[in-house]
Design a protein around this nucleic acid. Sequence first.
DNA 1: ATGGTGGGTAGCCCA
Length: 290
Amino acid sequence: MCPAIGPGTLGRALPLPDSRKALKALAMVTIATWNINSVRLRADQVERFLREQAPDVLCLQEIKTQESTFPHAVFEAAGYAHRVVHGQKGYHGVATVSRLPLREVSRHDWQDNGEARHVGVELLGAGQGLIVENVYIPAGGDVADRDINPKFGQKLDFLERMTRWADALDRPTLIVGDFNIAPLDCDVYNHKALLKVVSHTPIEVATLGRFRDAHGWEDLGRRFIPAPERNYSWWSYRSYWREKDQGRRLDHMWASPDLAPQALGHRIVEETRRWDQPSDHVPLITEFAL
DNA sequence: ATGGTGGGTAGCCCA
């Protein structure tokens, strides 16, 4: 008779799931974000960006169109066969396009007003299981007082709702997009001059800080380009601001604590701001080993 | 320091 082999003994001798995980090659995945300010007007610029930079995933904000008029053919021809579009006619709108398979997992409306400002996806191929949240936080109007300017209050409320949501997240997550807030003193060209300017007011910075702390997000832009190095992502269209390099860091890529160690590099593609008829924002790209 | 730009849309709204 063969000696009995207990299943527990066998299990300890061959911990198969862990072994397979350790042997699996890491996938290099690059993810980009760009407020494009009309994807139809600048479809050729997006195509050029994809050709020159070749990110695996691109998160777009301010596409300014609905799903039915999104320039799908341009992305299809460029090899971005996987697309999730949360659009609306004329305003706002976000889309995530990818060379890797993905599926939509969230389509939040943090203001309950129908504005299309957030879409989340899960990667299914390389980088399988990673959640990529693509968000376009409201600009907030001109006056930093919610009693005078309801849009400013809506911006803060949007962030508070995202904060309660982020507190409960339990999967590796990257959140990217146009946050419309420059949080650090060195994220604007003149900290003191912008303290009362929407995008850099102390209450916005504090509210964004609570969102960060709710999940322990790591600001990849400042991990790879440490303060106080210049790190702008947006310049006004007005020529005298551009000429003086009066920019702000409004666009961000933040990693959850379990994802952050897998980020290998990060850069700003500032040259797009010098193309003809550019977006007022430039793209950011992060490379991960997943 | 400045909406004195730029986009969408259709008689202004949004950034």
